[in-house]
Design a protein around this nucleic acid. Structure first.
Length: 438
RNA sequence: GUGGGUGUAGCUCAGUUGGUUAGAGCGCCAGUUUGUGGUAUUGGAGGUCGAGGGUUCGAGCCCCUCCUCCCACCCCA
């Protein structure tokens, strides 16, 4: 037997997982602050629920098999299609519907750096409303997450599908080839103008005479968002779709400005997003200090997707956090807690006879809100202190024969190297006063 | 999916044109006379050298196949 984790899958060891869970708790808090409750759905869906939703390529990447009852099933590929299923299956769900979901999804892709076959997705969506307020709310939530993490310099780059479609019309493209053009456009700042022109020229039916105008829109170096909108309107003003998009973005800008996050937002007509199902606003988030990490938070409006099972018209907008990228970035920026383990206090187990005394003390520490570990067997005090030191446990309580008799503990502050004999109440008071506020 | 690399102890790596029982540092465990951590010191455990096959008197080293991980492209989260 080969003892090995499956290719493309991985274990998250406790040291890493503790910090990741801390991060996710912050995310959940922000979502709930904005009034979004969690949703949980099964890992497995009937295969027919998922097939045909992700294009030919997505089809190949589904983990699909027969279950023990010979049902044709598949592991979920994302969280959006299951959401659509939930909305269709539970007819009494009121609109607007909001939820967040943080859960693993599975794709049978070839693994690469930072890319696994099982990975976490973290989505917030607002269903049933098509308004500038709903659009802006997603940006507000995204900004709140960044703020909660302590990330100050980032760019929320926003665009609108209507502008992209208008750009495609400028070069005579419509329909299928639109996606090819936009994919190359999305890479513009990576590949440069020259390569962009070369790549784009390969698309059949491209009208190159419109390219200059496209680049004029996309390479706008205006800083002020309103200025960018005016600039775009001066070029695309004849296109109804573009005008509609510009009006919507104008309204959104007013709201994000009032919400105090306008300085992090930036209109960027080159943001295209990979997936084709977006119908309105789209956005991606980049960290100024770590541009190589790529987009850490992205999403957009997708009005035609969620209603597919119910046949109802269900406009939707969402934002998705790149949990793994964010986790990496927070590590690089030294914004993670850095804890190796959760205990604040180690109670030494002096001897088997004194185990009850140690457990009694530990219970009292825990009731007071101090995360407490009892050493699991009688061992030399030296060894137990070594353990505390290695594990980064800041406080140690020793209860020996004399302390047990007197109802006290030897309280040791590992970092300061100081020790004193105190009552349990006094220890609790000291620890609570001394360490991190929640 | 395509191309290129890689694989020796838990980790980072040595290992001489193929030649006896495969090494180091760090880490781990246990001591240094029994109620107190980081330093020091002594000792110890731990490797069918990624797996399988081949060449050879002899393979960690050469050849083949597979697997793993890494890098680029593709695609994306």
């Amino acid at each position: 037997m080969k003892v090995q984790c499956l290719k493309g899958f991985r274990d998250y060891l406790p040291g890493e997982m503790l910090q990741k869970e801390r991060m996710l708790s912050s995310v959940r808090e922000v979502f709930e602050q904005h009034g979004y409750p969690p949703l949980m759905t099964p890992a497995l869906e009937y295969a027919e629920v998922l097939t045909g939703k992700y294009g030919d390529e997505g089809e190949m990447l589904l983990y699909r098999f027969r279950d023990n009852g010979d049902r044709d099933v598949a592991l979920r590929y994302d969280l959006t299609v299951p959401l659509a299923r939930v909305l269709a299956e539970h007819g009494d769900i009121g609109m607007p519907f909001r939820r967040y979901q943080i859960a693993p999804v599975w794709r049978a892709e070839k693994p690469a750096r930072g890319r696994f076959r099982e990975f976490m997705q973290c989505d917030v969506d607002l269903i049933g409303v098509d308004s500038a307020a709903a659009d802006a709310e997603m940006l507000v939530i995204g900004a709140a997450v960044m703020q909660r993490f302590g990330i100050e310099s980032y760019r929320l780059r926003i665009n609108h599908r209507g502008i992209l479609t208008a750009l495609c019309r400028l070069v005579g493209l419509e329909g299928a080839t639109e996606a090819d053009f936009l994919r190359i456009l999305d890479k513009l700042d990576k590949i440069g103008e020259e390569k962009f022109r070369a790549e784009v020229a390969k698309i059949p039916g491209l009208d190159e005479s419109g390219l200059d105008k496209v680049l004029e829109v996309v390479l706008c170096d205006q800083k002020d968002p309103a200025g960018v909108l005016d600039h775009i309107r001066s070029i695309l003003g004849d296109d109804d779709l573009a005008n509609e998009a510009l009006d919507r973005m104008h309204s959104i800008l007013e709201i994000v400005d009032a919400a105090g996050i306008a300085s992090s937002c930036q209109i960027d007509p080159s943001i295209a997003r990979g997936l084709s199902y977006y119908t309105g606003l789209v956005y991606e988030t980049f960290l100024d200090e770590l541009p190589q990490v790529g987009s850490v938070m992205s999403g957009g409006r997708y009005d035609d997707l969620v209603g597919m099972f119910s046949g109802k018209d269900l406009p939707a907008i969402g934002i998705s956090l790149g949990i793994d990228r964010l986790f990496y970035a927070l590590g690089e920026l030294e914004l993670l807690s850095g804890e190796k383990q959760p205990a604040q206090m180690l109670v030494v187990l002096f001897s088997d006879d004194l185990a009850p005394a140690s457990f009694a003390a530990a219970s009292r520490f825990r009731s007071a809100g101090i995360e407490t570990l009892v050493y699991p067997k009688a061992a030399k005090v030296k060894k137990q202190l070594q353990f505390a030191q290695k594990s980064d446990i800041p406080y140690v309580a020793v209860i020996g024969v004399e302390e047990s008799r007197a109802g006290t503990v030897q309280f040791r502050d590992m970092e300061a190297g100081l020790q004193e004999e105190l009552s349990i109440e006094a220890v609790i008071e000291k620890v609570l006063a001394g360490h991190r506020s929640p």
